[in-house]
Amino acid sequence: MRFIFAVLRQVFKNFRQTWLSQLMTLLTVSLSVFIFAFFYLVYINMLSIGDKLGYDLRLIVYLEEEPIPELQEQLRRKILAFDEVEEIYFVSRQEALERFKVQLGEDQDVLQDMPEDFLPPSIEVVPLKNLRSLNQVKLFSEYLSKLPGTIKVQYGQDWIERFYYFTRLVSIIVVLSAGLLILTSVFMVSYKIRLTIIGRKAELELMKLVGATNSYIRTPFFIEGILQGLLGSTLGLVALFGLFYWIKIKFSGPGILNIFEFSFFEPPIIVMISIVSILLCLTGSYSSMRKYLRT
Protein backbone atom coordinates (compact mmCIF):
# COMPACT_ATOMS: atom_id res chain seq x y z
CA MET A 1 0.00 0.00 0.00
CA ARG A 2 2.87 2.34 0.90
CA PHE A 3 4.45 1.48 -2.43
CA ILE A 4 1.28 2.44 -4.31
CA PHE A 5 1.02 5.80 -2.53
CA ALA A 6 4.73 6.48 -3.06
CA VAL A 7 4.41 5.68 -6.77
CA LEU A 8 1.27 7.83 -7.13
CA ARG A 9 3.11 10.73 -5.51
CA GLN A 10 5.87 10.23 -8.10
CA VAL A 11 3.29 10.25 -10.91
CA PHE A 12 1.77 13.46 -9.58
CA LYS A 13 5.23 15.01 -9.29
CA ASN A 14 6.08 13.98 -12.87
CA PHE A 15 2.86 15.50 -14.18
CA ARG A 16 3.55 18.73 -12.32
CA GLN A 17 7.08 18.97 -13.67
CA THR A 18 6.39 18.03 -17.28
CA TRP A 19 2.78 19.08 -17.72
CA LEU A 20 3.32 20.85 -21.03
CA SER A 21 4.90 17.88 -22.83
CA GLN A 22 2.35 15.60 -21.15
CA LEU A 23 -0.42 17.79 -22.54
CA MET A 24 1.07 17.77 -26.04
CA THR A 25 1.36 13.97 -25.98
CA LEU A 26 -2.17 13.67 -24.68
CA LEU A 27 -3.49 15.89 -27.49
CA THR A 28 -1.57 13.90 -30.11
CA VAL A 29 -2.94 10.61 -28.80
CA SER A 30 -6.46 12.10 -28.65
CA LEU A 31 -6.20 13.36 -32.21
CA SER A 32 -5.00 9.98 -33.47
CA VAL A 33 -7.83 8.19 -31.67
CA PHE A 34 -10.26 10.76 -33.08
CA ILE A 35 -9.03 10.29 -36.68
CA PHE A 36 -9.05 6.51 -36.43
CA ALA A 37 -12.42 6.36 -34.66
CA PHE A 38 -13.94 8.80 -37.17
CA PHE A 39 -13.12 6.63 -40.18
CA TYR A 40 -13.99 3.47 -38.29
CA LEU A 41 -17.37 4.97 -37.44
CA VAL A 42 -17.92 5.89 -41.09
CA TYR A 43 -16.96 2.36 -42.09
CA ILE A 44 -19.27 0.74 -39.55
CA ASN A 45 -22.17 2.94 -40.66
CA MET A 46 -21.44 2.11 -44.28
CA LEU A 47 -21.63 -1.58 -43.46
CA SER A 48 -24.97 -0.92 -41.83
CA ILE A 49 -26.17 1.08 -44.87
CA GLY A 50 -24.95 -1.74 -47.08
CA ASP A 51 -27.10 -4.15 -45.09
CA LYS A 52 -30.14 -1.93 -45.47
CA LEU A 53 -29.61 -1.42 -49.19
CA GLY A 54 -29.14 -5.14 -49.53
CA TYR A 55 -32.79 -5.64 -48.57
CA ASP A 56 -33.90 -3.98 -51.80
CA LEU A 57 -31.20 -5.48 -53.95
CA ARG A 58 -32.18 -8.05 -56.54
CA LEU A 59 -30.68 -9.17 -59.81
CA ILE A 60 -33.04 -9.72 -62.72
CA VAL A 61 -31.85 -12.28 -65.24
CA TYR A 62 -33.81 -11.95 -68.52
CA LEU A 63 -34.14 -15.25 -70.38
CA GLU A 64 -34.61 -16.01 -74.10
CA GLU A 65 -37.47 -18.38 -73.44
CA GLU A 66 -39.68 -19.70 -70.67
CA PRO A 67 -37.74 -22.40 -68.79
CA ILE A 68 -39.48 -25.71 -68.27
CA PRO A 69 -39.47 -27.02 -64.64
CA GLU A 70 -36.45 -29.25 -65.33
CA LEU A 71 -34.47 -26.31 -66.74
CA GLN A 72 -35.62 -24.16 -63.81
CA GLU A 73 -34.08 -26.71 -61.44
CA GLN A 74 -30.85 -26.77 -63.47
CA LEU A 75 -30.63 -22.96 -63.43
CA ARG A 76 -31.37 -22.89 -59.71
CA ARG A 77 -28.49 -25.33 -59.09
CA LYS A 78 -26.14 -23.24 -61.26
CA ILE A 79 -27.03 -20.05 -59.37
CA LEU A 80 -26.52 -21.70 -55.99
CA ALA A 81 -23.20 -23.05 -57.23
CA PHE A 82 -21.89 -19.45 -57.25
CA ASP A 83 -23.09 -18.43 -53.80
CA GLU A 84 -25.87 -18.88 -51.34
CA VAL A 85 -28.79 -16.57 -52.07
CA GLU A 86 -31.80 -15.37 -50.16
CA GLU A 87 -34.34 -16.23 -52.84
CA ILE A 88 -34.64 -17.36 -56.47
CA TYR A 89 -37.93 -16.60 -58.19
CA PHE A 90 -38.93 -17.44 -61.75
CA VAL A 91 -41.17 -14.88 -63.48
CA SER A 92 -43.08 -16.12 -66.52
CA ARG A 93 -44.00 -13.95 -69.55
CA GLN A 94 -47.58 -13.87 -68.30
CA GLU A 95 -46.64 -12.81 -64.78
CA ALA A 96 -44.31 -10.15 -66.16
CA LEU A 97 -47.19 -8.73 -68.19
CA GLU A 98 -49.51 -8.76 -65.16
CA ARG A 99 -46.92 -6.89 -63.09
CA PHE A 100 -46.45 -4.39 -65.89
CA LYS A 101 -50.16 -3.77 -66.07
CA VAL A 102 -50.30 -3.14 -62.34
CA GLN A 103 -47.42 -0.69 -62.70
CA LEU A 104 -49.18 1.16 -65.57
CA GLY A 105 -52.42 1.37 -63.60
CA GLU A 106 -54.95 3.46 -65.53
CA ASP A 107 -52.70 3.58 -68.58
CA GLN A 108 -52.71 -0.15 -69.11
CA ASP A 109 -54.88 0.35 -72.22
CA VAL A 110 -51.67 0.95 -74.14
CA LEU A 111 -50.97 -2.77 -73.88
CA GLN A 112 -54.22 -3.80 -75.60
CA ASP A 113 -52.70 -4.19 -79.05
CA MET A 114 -49.52 -5.80 -77.80
CA PRO A 115 -49.00 -9.57 -77.96
CA GLU A 116 -49.24 -11.23 -74.57
CA ASP A 117 -45.77 -12.72 -74.78
CA PHE A 118 -43.82 -9.59 -75.70
CA LEU A 119 -42.11 -9.41 -72.27
CA PRO A 120 -39.25 -11.88 -71.70
CA PRO A 121 -39.39 -14.38 -68.85
CA SER A 122 -36.92 -13.74 -66.06
CA ILE A 123 -35.34 -14.97 -62.85
CA GLU A 124 -35.27 -12.68 -59.81
CA VAL A 125 -32.27 -13.47 -57.64
CA VAL A 126 -32.20 -11.91 -54.16
CA PRO A 127 -28.66 -12.14 -52.76
CA LEU A 128 -27.89 -12.59 -49.07
CA LYS A 129 -28.38 -9.38 -47.08
CA ASN A 130 -24.85 -8.53 -46.22
CA LEU A 131 -22.13 -6.41 -47.72
CA ARG A 132 -20.01 -9.37 -48.76
CA SER A 133 -22.64 -10.41 -51.23
CA LEU A 134 -23.30 -6.76 -52.11
CA ASN A 135 -19.66 -6.38 -53.08
CA GLN A 136 -19.89 -9.59 -55.01
CA VAL A 137 -22.92 -8.46 -56.97
CA LYS A 138 -20.82 -7.42 -59.94
CA LEU A 139 -19.10 -10.78 -60.10
CA PHE A 140 -22.42 -12.49 -59.56
CA SER A 141 -24.03 -10.55 -62.38
CA GLU A 142 -21.17 -11.49 -64.73
CA TYR A 143 -21.64 -15.10 -63.74
CA LEU A 144 -25.38 -14.99 -64.30
CA SER A 145 -24.99 -13.32 -67.71
CA LYS A 146 -22.97 -16.36 -68.84
CA LEU A 147 -25.73 -18.82 -67.96
CA PRO A 148 -27.19 -20.48 -71.10
CA GLY A 149 -30.26 -18.69 -72.43
CA THR A 150 -29.56 -15.39 -70.66
CA ILE A 151 -30.28 -12.19 -72.61
CA LYS A 152 -29.29 -9.63 -70.01
CA VAL A 153 -28.75 -9.15 -66.28
CA GLN A 154 -29.99 -5.98 -64.59
CA TYR A 155 -29.39 -4.45 -61.19
CA GLY A 156 -28.49 -0.99 -59.85
CA GLN A 157 -25.00 -1.21 -61.40
CA ASP A 158 -23.99 2.38 -60.94
CA TRP A 159 -24.69 2.91 -57.28
CA ILE A 160 -23.51 -0.56 -56.29
CA GLU A 161 -20.15 -0.03 -57.97
CA ARG A 162 -19.77 3.42 -56.46
CA PHE A 163 -20.76 2.11 -53.07
CA TYR A 164 -18.36 -0.77 -53.42
CA TYR A 165 -15.40 1.47 -54.31
CA PHE A 166 -16.30 3.91 -51.55
CA THR A 167 -16.37 1.18 -48.91
CA ARG A 168 -13.04 -0.10 -50.23
CA LEU A 169 -11.61 3.42 -49.93
CA VAL A 170 -12.97 3.89 -46.41
CA SER A 171 -11.62 0.51 -45.32
CA ILE A 172 -8.16 1.52 -46.62
CA ILE A 173 -8.41 4.82 -44.72
CA VAL A 174 -9.42 2.90 -41.58
CA VAL A 175 -6.30 0.74 -41.90
CA LEU A 176 -4.11 3.80 -42.52
CA SER A 177 -5.56 5.71 -39.59
CA ALA A 178 -5.09 2.62 -37.41
CA GLY A 179 -1.42 2.73 -38.47
CA LEU A 180 -1.32 6.41 -37.57
CA LEU A 181 -2.83 5.62 -34.18
CA ILE A 182 -0.20 2.93 -33.54
CA LEU A 183 2.66 5.16 -34.67
CA THR A 184 1.60 8.18 -32.65
CA SER A 185 0.63 6.29 -29.52
CA VAL A 186 3.68 4.06 -29.36
CA PHE A 187 6.30 6.44 -30.70
CA MET A 188 5.02 9.68 -29.19
CA VAL A 189 4.68 8.16 -25.74
CA SER A 190 7.96 6.30 -26.14
CA TYR A 191 9.86 9.43 -27.23
CA LYS A 192 8.15 11.59 -24.64
CA ILE A 193 9.22 9.19 -21.90
CA ARG A 194 12.70 8.92 -23.40
CA LEU A 195 12.97 12.72 -23.33
CA THR A 196 11.74 12.73 -19.74
CA ILE A 197 14.34 10.11 -18.86
CA ILE A 198 17.10 12.16 -20.51
CA GLY A 199 15.83 15.30 -18.74
CA ARG A 200 15.73 13.50 -15.40
CA LYS A 201 18.81 11.31 -15.88
CA ALA A 202 20.61 12.76 -12.86
CA GLU A 203 17.56 12.30 -10.66
CA LEU A 204 16.96 8.71 -11.79
CA GLU A 205 20.65 7.87 -11.28
CA LEU A 206 20.48 9.36 -7.82
CA MET A 207 17.31 7.44 -7.05
CA LYS A 208 19.13 4.22 -7.91
CA LEU A 209 22.05 5.18 -5.68
CA VAL A 210 19.83 5.89 -2.68
CA GLY A 211 18.09 2.53 -3.11
CA ALA A 212 15.09 2.99 -5.39
CA THR A 213 13.89 -0.35 -6.72
CA ASN A 214 13.38 -0.81 -10.46
CA SER A 215 9.62 -1.05 -9.86
CA TYR A 216 9.66 2.28 -8.04
CA ILE A 217 11.44 3.92 -11.00
CA ARG A 218 9.46 2.10 -13.69
CA THR A 219 5.89 2.07 -12.36
CA PRO A 220 5.25 5.85 -12.53
CA PHE A 221 6.15 5.79 -16.23
CA PHE A 222 3.82 2.85 -16.83
CA ILE A 223 1.01 4.64 -15.01
CA GLU A 224 1.79 7.70 -17.13
CA GLY A 225 1.42 5.53 -20.28
CA ILE A 226 -1.87 4.06 -19.05
CA LEU A 227 -3.23 7.51 -18.22
CA GLN A 228 -2.13 8.89 -21.60
CA GLY A 229 -3.93 6.02 -23.34
CA LEU A 230 -7.07 6.26 -21.20
CA LEU A 231 -7.38 10.05 -21.26
CA GLY A 232 -6.31 10.25 -24.91
CA SER A 233 -8.94 7.74 -26.05
CA THR A 234 -11.61 9.29 -23.82
CA LEU A 235 -10.92 12.78 -25.19
CA GLY A 236 -10.81 11.52 -28.79
CA LEU A 237 -14.05 9.56 -28.45
CA VAL A 238 -15.86 12.36 -26.62
CA ALA A 239 -14.82 14.81 -29.37
CA LEU A 240 -16.04 12.35 -32.00
CA PHE A 241 -19.34 11.89 -30.21
CA GLY A 242 -19.69 15.69 -30.12
CA LEU A 243 -19.09 15.89 -33.87
CA PHE A 244 -21.46 12.96 -34.52
CA TYR A 245 -24.18 14.55 -32.42
CA TRP A 246 -23.69 17.94 -34.08
CA ILE A 247 -23.96 16.39 -37.57
CA LYS A 248 -27.09 14.51 -36.52
CA ILE A 249 -28.76 17.68 -35.21
CA LYS A 250 -27.52 19.92 -38.02
CA PHE A 251 -28.65 17.64 -40.84
CA SER A 252 -31.89 16.43 -39.29
CA GLY A 253 -35.00 16.98 -41.41
CA PRO A 254 -35.64 15.83 -44.97
CA GLY A 255 -32.42 14.98 -46.74
CA ILE A 256 -30.18 12.18 -47.87
CA LEU A 257 -28.75 11.66 -44.39
CA ASN A 258 -32.22 10.98 -43.05
CA ILE A 259 -32.82 8.01 -45.31
CA PHE A 260 -30.49 5.97 -43.17
CA GLU A 261 -30.18 5.92 -39.43
CA PHE A 262 -26.58 6.62 -38.35
CA SER A 263 -25.43 5.22 -35.06
CA PHE A 264 -22.46 5.77 -32.73
CA PHE A 265 -20.21 2.97 -31.48
CA GLU A 266 -21.68 0.27 -29.29
CA PRO A 267 -20.20 0.24 -25.74
CA PRO A 268 -18.01 -2.86 -26.41
CA ILE A 269 -16.33 -1.04 -29.34
CA ILE A 270 -15.71 2.05 -27.17
CA VAL A 271 -14.12 -0.18 -24.52
CA MET A 272 -12.07 -1.97 -27.18
CA ILE A 273 -10.72 1.32 -28.66
CA SER A 274 -9.80 2.52 -25.15
CA ILE A 275 -8.08 -0.74 -24.24
CA VAL A 276 -6.10 -0.79 -27.50
CA SER A 277 -5.08 2.83 -26.97
CA ILE A 278 -3.97 2.08 -23.39
CA LEU A 279 -2.00 -0.97 -24.52
CA LEU A 280 -0.27 1.01 -27.28
CA CYS A 281 0.74 3.80 -24.90
CA LEU A 282 1.87 1.22 -22.34
CA THR A 283 4.02 -0.42 -25.03
CA GLY A 284 5.60 3.00 -25.70
CA SER A 285 6.51 3.54 -22.05
CA TYR A 286 7.64 -0.06 -21.59
CA SER A 287 10.05 0.07 -24.53
CA SER A 288 11.64 3.30 -23.25
CA MET A 289 11.95 2.12 -19.66
CA ARG A 290 13.37 -1.23 -20.71
CA LYS A 291 16.09 0.50 -22.70
CA TYR A 292 16.87 2.82 -19.78
CA LEU A 293 16.99 0.18 -17.06
CA ARG A 294 19.07 -2.10 -19.27
CA THR A 295 21.79 0.54 -19.71
Binding site: R2, F5, A6, Q10, E203, L206, M207, G211, A212, T213
Partner: peptide, 9 residues
Protein backbone atom coordinates in the same frame (compact mmCIF):
# COMPACT_ATOMS: atom_id res chain seq x y z
CA UNK B 1 14.40 11.66 -2.14
CA UNK B 2 16.32 9.25 0.13
CA UNK B 3 13.22 8.67 2.24
CA UNK B 4 10.77 8.60 -0.66
CA UNK B 5 12.43 5.53 -2.16
CA UNK B 6 11.80 3.76 1.16
CA UNK B 7 8.09 4.67 0.83
CA UNK B 8 8.10 6.84 3.99
CA UNK B 9 4.91 8.78 4.68
Amino acid sequence: IAMEVSYRK
